[in-house]
Amino acid sequence: MKDILIKSKRIKKELLYLLVSLALADLLNVISIIVYKSSWKEIFTQLGYVFMIGILFYILSIIIRVLVRVIKSFF
C-alpha cells in the first residue's frame, strides 16, 4: 500500500485557507448585523452559524482549487 505524505507546508497552506474562510464568514456576520440592523451580541451568539459557513467556504475553496488543477492539467 502506498503511503500518502502530507508535507508541513501543505498543512500550513490548508490551515491558512480554513482561517481565511472563517474570517470571511465572520465578516459576513458583521455585514449582516449592519445591513439587518440586528444586535451586536450576534457576533458571539451566532458563532455556530459562522463556523458552519466558514466550513462551507473552505469546502468551496477545495472544490475550486481541484477544478482549477483539473482544468490546468488539460493545457
Partner: peptide
C-alpha cells in the same frame, strides 16, 4: 422579534 442578521441573510 427578527431573526439574527446572519440567518436573515441566509
Amino acid at each position: 422579534p427578527a431573526a439574527p442578521g446572519i440567518q436573515q441573510l441566509i
